[in-house]
Design a protein around this nucleic acid. Structure first.
Length: 596
RNA sequence: GUGCUUAUAGCUCAGCAGGAUAGAGCAGUCGCCUCCUAAGCGACCGAUGGGGGUUCGAGUCCCUCUAGGCACACCA
């Protein structure tokens, strides 16, 4: 189904052509002066130079041609050469009625693309913290938007479950529990099935282990020695792990198991679900063949002990270092894993796109990896590798978000805090039971959290102000939910004693009704834009504006007090609005309560 | 040092491909519940970092300055 704006543009292009001008000047855009018109065409201004004619003459000619077209209710030239357009009432109404019968609101679908979305990226050595919030929320929304457009989407959590960090955790566990069977070379029985430690332990163990490898400047030789030894042991553990040494590998599996269980619970709280729970470790089996391939292609060479691939390109404005494929000693590194993962995804899914939702500070790293992957031909040459870098979530002071005492806040705690604030808002309400209040505050809290994040542009840093996001006034998730709940409540009230004969919206009488229809008619346009640009924020803005218009309509029009034909039209309109809001928040990754 | 990026109202953000009077929200001031949920609606107040340039027209494009942020191979 064509966009409403495209229908208007088709006419306008035709008119330009008929007047002897290039049809490219018939571009129609949303009006930036809603007080004057609904759509506008600025083509005459642009065409003036080329045709050496004053723009208002061109505009007048075109407007004259358009007078007979039934698509326009109003079309006029305003000096110096703007063409102002209002869409005809019939076209607008019919268009909305068609949307009502379209499952996907009249979006043109782009089928059969396979898209892998890499988001999440939690480290299994530690619990989720606020830093994991953005990738989870953004990635989930991008995934849902791509699914809506009928793509075959694979969301991969891509666990950080490999490398030195694991060796460090194991070393610390060994230090604390040397008696564990895992470390007993002679043990050949079955390892303990029960969990010997919790996620909370891990939360403390990793930083502890990490700090043991670092020494202050004025440390004694003995202290330095100790730190080095610890680090060496961690390296050895990592090597053991990589060769799947009995005990060490089993302990690692235990860590993964405990951690993943906790991660799943936490992601569930965020309404975030992954299709794949693979990690860095899963790509290791491709490293060898990948390196062989690079050698065969002659692109891999030794540099200062490491194995690297040049990725400099002629148009670069600065020097780009080679991509390190293997560290000194043939050890895997960050790049190795990401490259091997690309190879793995190519083999498993043959994707058209891989989208990386990662911190934007990693951009250079991914430029190197992507280039290297192409040079090494481990990815189909037509496949797109997309880096979707997100900005930092800062606190009110503009610095990276921290707890009050300066620590890293656990994601769980953040969610709890948001929920608590919502709960407080409802605490005194006598309308709801205690149980309902807890349930509603979780749903509303999540909407506050997610909407606050998604309404910002992905690549920008943003200020996370918990008080602002939970104040629920203005452009917030709860405002959207409140509007939807209102609509649902009216519909419920109507359907208590009535049924509807025909689902059809009538021509708008009030100006505010017309505005709603106009907004509705643009939903498909917004969805396509946010899909193509990977920009959930466009949906956020749209829903907010739609809610605004609806709420002022609600204020002006007694929706249920109209006579029968008009009433049915109102109900049809509300049903459509309900669908749009529900679809919109679904794509953003949250849901609405029945009441609030 | 090299490169990337950001700068819009007191605060937090929009601004579509260069178009008309730069939009919101919060904060502040003032109105609206006998009426489908006041987590709502309406009104007022308030802004493009500095300087050049391109253009009929610049928040948007180019240059430059200033101030932040970030990245630059053996941590991931």
């Amino acid at each position: 189904m064509k966009k409403l704006i495209s229908l208007l543009q088709d006419r306008m292009e035709k008119a330009f052509q008929e007047c002897g001008y290039d049809n490219e000047y018939g571009k129609v855009i949303n009006s930036n002066r809603p007080d004057l018109c609904e759509f506008q065409c600025d083509g005459a201004l642009a065409a003036a130079k080329r045709y050496k004619k004053p723009p208002f003459i061109i505009a007048e000619e075109v407007v004259e041609k358009c007078k007979d077209y039934k698509e326009f209710e109003k079309i006029e030239m305003i000096k110096p050469g703007f063409i102002n357009i209002n869409v005809s009432k019939d076209l607008l109404t019919n268009y909305c009625n068609r949307i009502m019968n379209e499952e996907k609101f009249g979006c043109q679908m782009y089928k059969n693309k396979t898209v892998v979305i890499d988001y999440g990226g939690p480290n299994i050595a530690k619990p989720l913290h606020v830093g994991h919030l953005r990738p989870a929320i953004i990635g989930e929304s991008i995934k849902r938007i791509h699914k809506f457009f009928d793509n075959n989407v694979i969301g991969d959590v891509h666990l950080g479950d490999w490398g030195l960090q694991m060796g460090l955790v194991i070393e610390e566990l060994k230090f604390r529990h040397p008696d564990w069977d895992y470390f007993n070379e002679n043990f050949d029985g079955e390892y303990c099935k029960e969990a010997l430690f919790t996620v909370t332990d891990l939360e403390e163990i990793y930083p502890c282990a990490n700090s043991k490898t670092k020494v202050s400047e004025n440390a004694t030789e003995e202290e330095k020695e100790k730190a080095n030894e610890f680090k060496e042991n961690a390296r050895t553990n990592t090597a053991y792990l990589q060769e799947k040494k009995r005990g060490y590998y089993d302990l690692w599996k235990k860590i993964v198991e405990i951690s993943v269980k906790d991660l799943k619970e936490n992601y569930k709280k965020l309404n975030v679900f992954f299709d794949l729970w693979l990690g860095e470790s899963d790509s290791q089996k491709y490293v060898k063949s990948m390196v062989e391939k690079m050698k065969d292609l002659g692109i891999l060479y030794e540099s200062n002990g490491a194995m690297v691939v040049d990725v400099q390109e002629p148009n670069d404005t600065t020097q780009i270092n080679p991509c390190m494929v293997l560290k000194t000693g043939g050890v895997s590194c960050y790049q190795t894993t990401d490259l091997a993962t690309i190879m793995q995804r190519q083999i498993d899914f043959n994707p058209d796109e891989i989208i990386y939702v990662v911190d934007k500070r990693q951009e250079l790293h991914f430029i190197q990896v992507f280039r290297c992957a192409r040079k090494a031909e481990i990815i189909d040459k037509d496949a797109k590798l997309i880096f979707l870098g997100f900005g930092t979530m800062n606190g009110k002071d503009g610095k990276p978000f921290k707890t009050r005492n300066g620590g890293v806040m656990r994601l769980e705690n953040l969610i709890d805090e948001v929920n608590r604030k919502v709960y407080e808002k409802m605490r005194d309400s006598k309308e709801y039971s205690e149980e309902e209040k807890v349930k509603i505050s979780k749903i509303v809290g999540l909407s506050a959290l997610k909407y606050a994040d998604l309404s910002n542009q992905i690549s920008k840093d943003y200020i996370f102000d918990i008080d602002k996001f939970t104040s629920f006034e203005g452009k917030t998730g709860p405002y959207i939910l409140y509007t939807l709940v209102r609509i649902k409540s009216i519909l419920n009230k109507f359907y208590e004693n009535n049924t509807i004969k025909e689902n059809k919206i009538l021509n708008p009488v009030e100006d505010i009704e017309r505005q709603i229809l106009l907004k509705i008619s643009k939903y498909n346009q917004i969805l396509e834009e946010s899909y193509i640009e990977n920009a959930p924020s466009k949906i956020c803005t749209y829903l907010y504006e739609l809610a605004n218009i609806f709420n002022s309509y609600y204020q002006k029009v007694k929706i249920l007090k109209e006579d029968s034909e008009r009433l049915e039209s109102n109900i049809s309109l509300l049903s459509l609005l309900k669908r749009i809001f529900e679809n919109g928040i679904e794509l953003l990754g949250f849901e609405a309560p029945e009441k609030m």
